[in-house]
Simulated scan of single mutants.
Amino acid sequence: MTQRTTVRELLTEHGRTHAEEAGIHLANTPMPLYQLLTLCVLFSVRIKADIAVAAAHEVFAAGWRTPRAMAASSWQDRVDALGRAHYRRYDESTATALGEGAELIRDRYAGDLRRLREAAGEDPGRIRELLREVPRIGPVGADIFCREAQGVWPELRPAFDRRARRAAADLGLPGTSEGLARLVDAEDLPRLAAALVRAGLSSSRS
């Protein structure tokens, strides 16, 4: 099997981004970028991916799709929304993180993550540093954001975190971000990164 055949099969079987699963139509505009950040906050604890995605659906269905709306919501309402998604153990701390993070993005960047990008000078390393100033966003959350946002912020390309590169090497694919990027068109980079992470998780469970 050639590497490109392996990639095609990966994209067919696993090539759906977390943003797509959460109903986020990602674009370089304030609302979907903030929704992606919210999703990353939800992923930044030890919880199953499907529960994090379900929690995102609940949060967005409640109308909290912007920092202003999230900051205006009550802590209890956020806890209740997370509870409906069975987001257990971390519901209270995550409700706090969502509120505090919304206030930070609203106050520091006027609710627009493109201003974070500008503040970072479009430097990928600095973007990650600024993302990690958001409550609950650590290295994993920053990696997820960059993996998904590389579709709309070209300076992040190619974004394949350690988990994706490890899975690629196990599948006989290049173990570097640059090598993987040569196997797909730029618009498919987020899908390939997500597919590799999922394939790695599936392999670890088997």
Rank of each mutant, 00 (worst) to 15 (best):
D80N: 15
L173D: 03
R132E: 15
T176R: 02
T176H: 02
E21I: 01
R4Y: 00
E122K: 13
S202H: 10
R205Q: 13
G125C: 05
A142D: 04
R115I: 06
H18Y: 14
V197Y: 01
V41F: 04
M31I: 05
L130A: 06
R84W: 08
G15Q: 03
A159W: 04
A194L: 07
H14W: 13
I24S: 05
W75C: 00
A164P: 04
W64Q: 11
V184A: 07
R84L: 13
H57P: 05
I137G: 10
C146H: 04
G23S: 06
A120S: 14
D143G: 10
P139A: 15
S206E: 15
V184I: 08
A22R: 07
G179F: 06
R163N: 07
I127V: 15
Y109N: 07
E9T: 08
R162Y: 08
P154K: 08
F60Q: 05
L10P: 10
A186F: 01
T38D: 10
P154Q: 11
A61L: 08
Y90D: 10
I137N: 08
S204A: 15
D188K: 11
V59T: 14
E100M: 12
L189V: 03
A49C: 05
R126W: 07
A52W: 03
G141M: 03
G125N: 09
D107F: 06
L36K: 00
R205A: 12
A120K: 08
G23I: 10
G179E: 07
E148Q: 11
E20S: 14
H14E: 14
L104M: 14
T12S: 15
I127A: 10
R84V: 10
F145P: 04
S73C: 11
A119M: 02
A169M: 12
D50N: 13
E21P: 00
L36C: 04
R106I: 00
L26D: 04
R128I: 02
E21C: 09
E9A: 10
R163F: 09
L104V: 09
T176E: 03
R65H: 06
R205V: 11
L98E: 11
Y34D: 04
E122R: 15
V134I: 15
A72D: 11
S204I: 00
T6W: 00
L11N: 10
T94Q: 06
E148G: 11
A85T: 02
D80S: 13
A49P: 00
L180A: 12
E178S: 06
V152Y: 05
I144R: 03
G138Q: 09
A95R: 09
G141D: 01
E129S: 15
A61N: 09
T96C: 01
A149N: 05
E129G: 10
I51N: 03
L156R: 12
